[in-house]
Amino acid sequence: MAAYRRVFLAAAAGAFITAALSPAGLAFDGPETSALAAAKPLQMFKDPHQALQSALESYRSGNPASSVEALKYAAAGGEALAQWKLGRMYADGDGVPRDDYKAYQYFQGIVDNYDEDTANWREKSVVASAFVAVGLFNLKGISGNRLQADAEAAQRLFMYAATHFSDSNAQYQLARLYLDGAAGVPRNHMQAARWLNLAAEKNHVESQALLGQLLFSGDGVPAQRARGLMWMTLAREGAGGKTQDWIRAQYEQAIHAANDADRQAALVYLEDHLKRRY
Rank of each mutant, 00 (worst) to 15 (best):
A3F: 15
Y4F: 14
L9F: 11
A11S: 14
A13V: 09
G14C: 05
G14P: 04
F16M: 09
T18N: 12
A19T: 13
A20E: 13
A20Y: 15
L21M: 12
F28V: 14
G30V: 10
E32K: 10
P41V: 03
L42F: 07
M44W: 08
K46S: 13
D47W: 01
H49D: 15
H49E: 14
L52R: 01
S58P: 01
S61Q: 02
S61R: 01
N63A: 11
P64C: 04
P64H: 03
S66H: 10
S67E: 05
V68S: 06
A70V: 01
L71W: 01
L71M: 04
A74C: 06
A75T: 06
A76I: 05
A80H: 03
W84D: 02
G87D: 00
G95Q: 06
D100P: 03
D112W: 11
N113Y: 08
N113T: 13
D115S: 12
W121A: 05
R122G: 15
E123A: 07
V127K: 09
V127T: 10
A128H: 05
S129G: 15
A130G: 07
F131L: 08
V132P: 05
V132G: 04
V134W: 02
G135C: 09
G135H: 05
F137R: 09
N138W: 10
K140S: 12
G141H: 07
G144L: 10
N145C: 12
N145A: 15
A149D: 05
E152I: 14
A153K: 08
A154E: 01
R156S: 13
R156A: 13
L157R: 00
M159Q: 08
Y160C: 07
L174N: 05
R176Q: 09
L177S: 02
L179W: 00
D180M: 06
A182E: 08
V185I: 04
R187I: 07
H189C: 05
M190F: 11
M190G: 11
Q191Y: 06
A192K: 00
A193V: 03
R194N: 06
L196Y: 00
N197T: 10
L198A: 09
N203E: 11
V205C: 00
V205R: 01
S207Y: 02
S207T: 07
S207M: 01
S207P: 08
F216H: 04
G218M: 10
V221M: 05
A223F: 12
A223P: 10
R236Q: 14
E237Y: 06
A239F: 00
G241R: 13
K242L: 14
K242H: 15
T243A: 12
Q244A: 04
D245Y: 10
D245C: 09
I247A: 03
R248M: 09
Q250V: 07
Y251C: 00
Y251N: 04
E252L: 03
H256E: 12
A261R: 13
R263K: 10
Q264S: 11
A266N: 03
L270Q: 08
K275Q: 15
R276H: 06
R277A: 15
